[in-house]
Amino acid sequence: MMNQLKGKVILVTTIITAIVLFGGWAIYEQFVVKAPLEQAIMKVDGIIKADKPVRDQKTMSIQVELSPTANLKEVYTAISEQGKRMIGNRTLQLDVNNQEYERLDQVWEKSMFQIAEAMETRTYSTIPNVLEQLASDEIEVYTEMDDSNVYITLKDQNTALHKILPRVAEKLGVWTNV
Score class of each variant (00 low, 15 high):
V141R: 03
N89Y: 06
Q133H: 11
I16C: 07
V130Y: 05
A26W: 14
I16G: 04
V168E: 10
A70S: 01
K155H: 09
T176D: 03
T121Q: 11
K155S: 12
L165I: 15
H162T: 00
W175I: 15
M145L: 12
Q106H: 15
M119N: 02
K49A: 12
A116R: 14
I16T: 11
S61I: 11
D56G: 11
L161Q: 01
V20I: 15
R90K: 10
R122D: 08
R103C: 00
V33H: 06
V107D: 05
G7M: 05
V150S: 01
N177F: 14
Q39G: 05
Q30L: 02
M86Q: 15
K43C: 11
S111T: 11
L161S: 06
G23S: 03
D51K: 10
T126I: 08
A135D: 05
V20N: 06
L131R: 09
T123H: 14
V141I: 09
Y101I: 12
I16M: 04
V96G: 00
D45I: 06
T121F: 10
E74P: 03
Q4K: 04
W108L: 08
V174W: 14
T17E: 05
L154K: 00
Y124E: 06
T159S: 10
L165S: 01
R103Q: 10
P53L: 09
V130I: 15
V54N: 12
L5D: 01
N158Q: 13
I62L: 04
Y142T: 07
T143L: 07
I79L: 11
A35M: 03
V130P: 03
R122F: 05
A50T: 09
L37H: 06
